[in-house]
């Protein structure tokens, strides 16, 4: 339904992800113990920031050229539109990020099983970021300085995802098992999947008025 249209555009957030995550080993020094300790957190924070970087573009372009109006005037319910937008965002931001993450894991000297858990937590976690992000993008649509406002609005909402996502990897390395963190993450995903598209659709209607 909604195609990824511009090629060069979405790669920026992937590069950003890689760059931010790579700065830490360079800055902190090549001590495997420290790196292993901070690794999961750094990868997760980079993922959050990369998602924020790509969010303002999610709806802004459609808003500017008027296609958002047209989409709202189609017989489809706006909720479906909001859900489709989140899905599209996840496909072009979340999936490439998942594919790059093992390489970053190696950079932080994470053991193989921790990398697997990291990917799994990102797999569950990044759709949450896209869904919550679509709410923020819809709310800040058409405002000046919306990028900063979006960051302020959405980052606090990302905190639980960060805690459980990075927590899962830490737990896996400590040998206590990551299941509990991952199931909590899954619960958050189900909850946002149920709630976020509705809020985003309502916000869209308000923004377009």
């Amino acid at each position: 339904m909604l195609a990824a249209r511009r090629r060069g555009d979405w790669l920026t957030s992937q590069f950003f992800f890689v760059m931010v995550a790579s700065m830490f080993p360079l800055g902190i020094g090549p001590d495997p113990v420290t790196l292993k300790l901070i690794g999961p957190g750094v990868v997760w924070v980079s993922a959050l920031l990369a998602s924020l970087l790509s969010l303002p573009r999610l709806l802004a372009e459609d808003y500017r050229d008027g296609s958002l109006e047209q989409m709202l005037l189609t017989p489809q319910p706006p909720v479906l539109l909001a859900l489709g937008k989140s899905l599209a965002h996840w496909l072009i931001y979340g999936i490439p990020l998942l594919i790059i993450s093992p390489i970053l894991g190696i950079q932080f000297a994470l053991p193989a099983e921790a990398i697997a858990v990291l990917m799994l937590s990102l797999l569950i976690g990044t759709p949450i970021l896209s869904l919550l992000g679509s709410v923020g993008a819809a709310l800040t649509l058409g405002l000046r300085g919306s990028g900063v406002l979006l960051t302020l609005l959405i980052l606090p909402l990302y905190v639980p995802v960060l805690i459980f996502g990075a927590g899962a990897v830490d737990a896996a390395m400590a040998g206590t098992g990551a299941e509990s963190h991952l199931s909590l993450l899954g619960a958050i995903l189900v909850l946002t999947l149920l709630v976020a598209p509705w809020i985003a659709a309502a916000a869209l209607k308000v923004s377009i008025e």
Partner: peptide, 12 residues
């Protein structure tokens, strides 16, 4: 069908 000030077409 509605056409407003903006054309609602994708430039790409």
């Amino acid at each position: 069908a509605y056409i407003g000030h903006l054309n609602g077409i994708k430039d790409d």
